[in-house]
Design a binder for these strands. Structure first.
Lengths: 350, 350
DNA sequence: ATTATCTGCACAAACGTTTGCGCAAATTCC
DNA sequence: GGAATTTGCGCAAACGTTTGTGCAGATAAT
């Protein structure tokens, strides 16, 4: 690469040796000064000041690859998420990145596309890049690759879900409680025929939400219609198809509990096609609050998850595990969601 | 760290020396086999097979930090975005990560919070981490730090905007054309009193959209009301406040052109508070299509940006510049947006 | 039998940083 | 004056990989 350009006299140095040469010192001295160890190694104040001034003058910044090799610490963290385009995960990722940056870490972003093979490959890739720790929202289809890396000593924190049968620490919403409050709200408004359109059944967030839905209905002493628990994907298309299926039943539900924001958008699309409206024809409560929830055709009643708190607690738990270096420290948490009541549930007691 | 656990006989090796020791070979031989260079260095097939089997058996994966130091190539890319929680940037980030992963690269995610000092710090941090290239949606408040790193030989591609007065390659929407078609649509429906709520004025995406808005109005031969170009942030709060300001004017506009999806959510919130509806009281056209745009109280007419294409072209341009190693190769592109006509514009010709 | 060539692998240096240990000169103490 | 101590810095090894170059034994050619 021919990159010969006229530059000012004080041009850049490319490594610590060149900077040391400029100062007629050794790389040892320069390294110690720049790492704030002047006093420990009895480097004179005069020399220290010279080094700092020269680093600035010659635009020196250390090669963190070399530093990472020597220190066996890269100050990087892996973040594996099933869909970064999903605003829910985008919010969590933002919180994690901002906090990580403040604590001197960089984030390697990995999108698993909710595919277990991609996820496994990404995990080993992160291991090879010697990340100091990993935050993951696992696909849930298999746990052993996650557990194996934890056993190799890589601190891992799970978010948005947990992995049953493992000791992996996690930060998630209390999905069971969120589902309970959502379905209780529907029951209070007189709904007894409540369908549930679920997502990926392999993850605990879904299982816990379904369990909350089932238990709320049982608590009311009414029967559960198994035909009204359907779907297997958190995406919009699944919401759309399952709503079409529901509305084709002779025994239609009066309300639908959507387990994700994308599912509820699919519900809206299907109902619109069928000429049905929320809440007159069908009531809807949806998991996850979005910036647009209040502005939908019918402002949506939602279960708000504490995304920033999930991100913050996850990153800080991970950093604590990294610095304390023992994998038995696990302060898992299930955070309280919040029901935001708007207009998408019709009171049919009247 | 005490991590002593019973493991199967074939336990993991931690580096290539240990693997070589197991095979009674040199690290040289192992490295060449695993890097697919057996034939070039005349390593026998028997030995090759042994190496590959042992790597698998002992769960060996190479330390990419050491490899990056030796090869002076880390196979990492920096991605600097002003707000990863914004679904627009989330979509672009997803496309970039997926394509990068397929091509063997990892993405270091950096959220600049739309702050130029944070952005500068992140740029130098990425330089220190020896990323092979950088994709950035710059804050636009200053260019010199971006240009300086380009001049140091780091391939950089700008997305969502361009940096005037620099030679930095970019992939962006043709914002001018998008604004033209949006405002022409309003004009065709009889609107002559059209306000524009803009975002961050320091970036080209905003400037080009404003210019498109202005030129479309001038083309109609009608006067431009400078009071109707307001705002300075792409956020929801700005949309809300400026809509309140607009509706407080004696000379109210009949339509608003929102330069971002968050601005248009703010518009909706303000109008709702004022008891006004879209499109009866005010028509709205908004930049950027969202999954929810069709399901708003009034389905929104939007300018759809080709996000996946932006992401794909950006990552592929960057990888091309990395492999070709000359910064004069610039295949910048402005991609065509698309107007999606829904119901948020009232025909006032009637 | 000797020399030339081939085969199958290894030695040692390098990438850029950090640090345990130590050197040489200056200063202090007896 | 000589020994002990302090001062101000540097040497060289190491982290884990890759590769230019080369070695030693086997084989082929003369």
């Amino acid at each position: 690469m021919c990159n010969f350009v006229l530059q000012p006299m004080n041009r850049k140095v490319n490594n610590i040796k060149e900077l040391a040469d400029q100062l007629k010192l050794s790389p040892t001295t320069v390294s110690r000064v720049l790492n704030g160890k002047s006093e420990i190694y009895r480097i004179s104040e005069t020399t220290s000041k010279k080094v700092i001034a020269a680093a600035r003058k010659f635009h020196y910044y250390p090669n963190r690859i070399a530093r990472g090799l020597k220190l066996e610490k890269t100050e990087t963290l892996g973040l594996i998420i099933p869909d970064i385009a999903n605003p829910y995960f985008g919010s969590i990722a933002k919180t994690i990145e901002v906090e990580a940056h403040q604590k001197g870490y960089s984030i390697i972003l990995c999108d698993s596309l909710d595919d277990v093979e991609t996820e496994t490959e990404l995990l080993y890739l992160l291991a090879g890049r010697k990340v100091d720790g990993i935050i993951i929202a696992p696909t849930g289809k298999s746990n052993e690759h996650v557990v194996e890396l934890q056993q190799q000593g890589i601190p891992i924190v799970v978010i948005d879900r947990y992995l049953p049968g493992t000791s992996l620490p996690f930060i998630t919403t209390d999905n069971y409680a969120g589902a309970l409050m959502a379905v209780k709200h529907l029951l209070e408004k007189g709904h007894q025929q409540i369908a549930c359109i679920q997502g990926n059944q392999g993850i605990s967030a879904n299982s816990d939400r379904v369990k909350g839905y089932v238990d709320a209905i049982h608590t009311k002493g009414i029967g559960l219609n198994e035909d009204w628990i359907l779907g297997d994907d958190f995406g919009e298309e699944n919401g759309y198809l399952q709503t079409k299926n529901l509305m084709a039943l002779a025994d239609k539900p009066t309300a639908i509990f959507a387990l994700s924001n994308l599912i509820s958008l699919g519900i809206l699309r299907a109902l619109k096609e069928l000429g049905l409206t929320v809440p007159d024809d069908v009531s809807v409560v949806s998991f996850d609050e979005q910036p647009y929830s209040a502005f939908l055709a019918c402002p949506m009643t939602t279960v708000e998850q504490p995304r920033e708190e999930i991100g913050n607690m996850a990153i800080n738990l991970l950093l604590k595990n990294i610095s304390e270096g023992n994998a038995v420290n696990l302060n898992s948490a299930m955070l309280q969601p919040r029901l935001i009541v708007r207009e998408s549930v019709k009171n049919i007691n009247i």
